[in-house]
């Protein structure tokens, strides 16, 4: 598999994309919660739902009051809590 790394492009958290924008997953940062134990499980859960590096994610909408965001990934509609979405780093895909 080829590495989709673009060092000259900015990696930003998924939460900084606006509605309707597309990001390409570059990495998932940090263990979740205290202690690194839950970290691996957290990353694995995201992977299993299809958020592997190089995957395109469309941000459909975000709920108010610091709520979750709705994304479209590999044809399925997912709700992601904000805390989780903040740890997913993407490269913004410019409009073609």
């Amino acid at each position: 598999m080829e590495q989709q790394r673009a060092p000259d492009r900015l990696e930003i958290p998924l939460t900084s994309l606006k509605e309707g924008e597309i990001g390409i997953v570059s990495s998932i940062k940090g263990a979740y919660g205290r202690g690194g134990r839950a970290g691996r499980g957290f990353e694995k859960r995201l992977m299993d739902m299809g958020l592997t590096p190089g995957t395109e994610i469309l941000v459909v909408k975000s709920a108010p009051f610091h709520g979750p965001i709705e994304i479209l990934v590999r044809g399925s509609r997912l709700a992601l809590g904000r805390g989780m979405a903040e740890r997913i780093f993407v490269v913004k895909k410019e409009n073609v």
């Binding site: 979740y32 919660g33 859960r45 709700a79 992601l80 809590g81 979405a85």
Partner: peptide, 13 residues
Amino acid sequence: PGEPTALMMEIST
């Protein structure tokens, strides 16, 4: 106390 797990759920059709 403790940090809540973040939501991750498929939104069904």
